[in-house]
Each structure stands twice: as structure tokens, then as C-alpha cells.
Simulated assay, not measured.
Amino acid sequence: MTATGILVAIIIGAIVGALGRLVLPGRQPIGILLTVGVGIVAAVLGTIIAQNVGVATTDGIDWIELAFQVGLAAVGVAIVAGLQGRRGIR
């Protein structure tokens, strides 16, 4: 993977992670770096799921793929926030 590819993955991960946090109600006690990390993982998994379903190669913006990514990011942020909350962070 090139440096440009890594930079694009980080930017998309940050956007997907932020959208995942926006979908969840309330406050999540996790930092921005953890949000970006969850977003990157969700973006990769969402793309894999979209490719397996057959909706990743469409003209224009892949809205269904984006929905998979944001949904996975919301689930990931909820899981990480729940784990952070159990550690006693207040």
C-alpha cells in the first residue's frame, strides 16, 4: 500500500468513525484516535461485506456500502465505549 493509500484510509476512517459516533445517542467516552481506528476497521469490513453482497461496484457514490460502513462503525464505537465505561473512566 502506498503512502497515499494509507492517508486516504485514515481520512475515510475518520469520516466513517465520526459518522458512526453521530448515529449513536449520548456521549461516548473514547478519544479521536480510537474513533479513527474503529472507523478504519469499519470501512474495510463494510467494503468487504458490500463486495460479497455485490453492491460495491456501482456508478457514483456507493450509498449501500457507506451504510454498511457507518453501521459497523456505530456498532464498533458502541462496543469500544462500553468497554471503556467498564474500566471506570468517568
Rank of each mutant, 00 (worst) to 15 (best):
M1L: 12
T2V: 02
A3L: 14
T4C: 00
G5F: 08
G5M: 09
G5K: 10
G5P: 05
I6Y: 13
I6L: 15
I6E: 09
I6T: 13
L7G: 13
L7F: 13
L7V: 11
V8R: 05
A9C: 00
I10Y: 04
I12W: 03
G13M: 04
A14K: 04
I15P: 10
I15H: 09
I15L: 15
V16C: 07
V16K: 02
V16W: 02
G17E: 09
A18T: 14
A18D: 07
G20N: 06
G20H: 06
G20W: 07
R21C: 04
R21L: 07
L22C: 03
L22Y: 12
V23N: 00
V23W: 03
G26K: 08
G26N: 10
Q28T: 13
I30C: 00
G31Y: 11
G31T: 05
G31R: 12
L33F: 14
L33E: 05
L34F: 02
T35Q: 14
T35W: 10
V36Y: 05
G37A: 14
G37Y: 06
G37V: 09
V38F: 11
V38E: 07
A43W: 10
A43F: 06
A43Q: 06
V44C: 01
L45V: 15
L45F: 14
L45M: 12
G46N: 09
T47L: 09
I48E: 08
I48A: 13
Q51C: 09
N52F: 10
G54I: 04
V55K: 00
V55I: 08
A56F: 14
A56L: 10
A56P: 05
T57M: 03
T57H: 14
T57V: 06
T57Y: 11
T57Q: 13
T58S: 04
T58D: 01
T58M: 04
D59A: 14
D59V: 09
D59Y: 09
G60P: 08
G60A: 02
G60C: 03
G60D: 06
G60V: 02
I61K: 02
I61T: 10
I61C: 00
D62F: 00
W63M: 13
W63P: 03
I64Y: 08
I64E: 08
A67R: 07
A67S: 15
A67H: 07
Q69P: 03
Q69I: 02
V70Q: 03
V70K: 03
G71C: 10
G71N: 11
A73E: 10
A74H: 01
A74P: 02
G76S: 14
V77L: 02
A78W: 14
A78T: 04
I79W: 15
V80I: 14
V80D: 01
A81P: 06
A81L: 04
G82E: 10
L83C: 05
L83A: 10
L83Y: 12
Q84R: 15
R86D: 08
R87F: 08
R87C: 01
R87L: 14
G88P: 04
I89P: 00
I89V: 15
